[in-house]
Amino acid sequence: MTDTSNSTVVDLEQLRATIADVLELSLDELTDDARFVEDLGVDSLIGLELQITLEVQYGVRLTEADLRRATSLHSAHRLLTALLTETDLPAPERL
């Protein structure tokens, strides 16, 4: 498993600020583990907005499977880190 705590590829606080901006949340509210849909009320349109924002900002392409796994700041951070370090792990282990 990728150890994201050592990763500097994706700065967690920068990602928090980006996602909080898209979701109209304060930095405090966007905790590492708050779930986008269940806890923060993100609907399909805002979900798409988050996708395109992350794709543009990090230069990645996110699949639907990626998005289903990126359910919180924490998991989104792990996903982006994995994508940007081009970890060649099979998809289920990529997180």
Partner: peptide, 10 residues
């Protein structure tokens, strides 16, 4: 169109 904002698209 890929760069349209989805949340604004409606």
């Amino acid at each position: 169109a890929d760069l349209l904002s989805p949340a604004r698209a409606p």
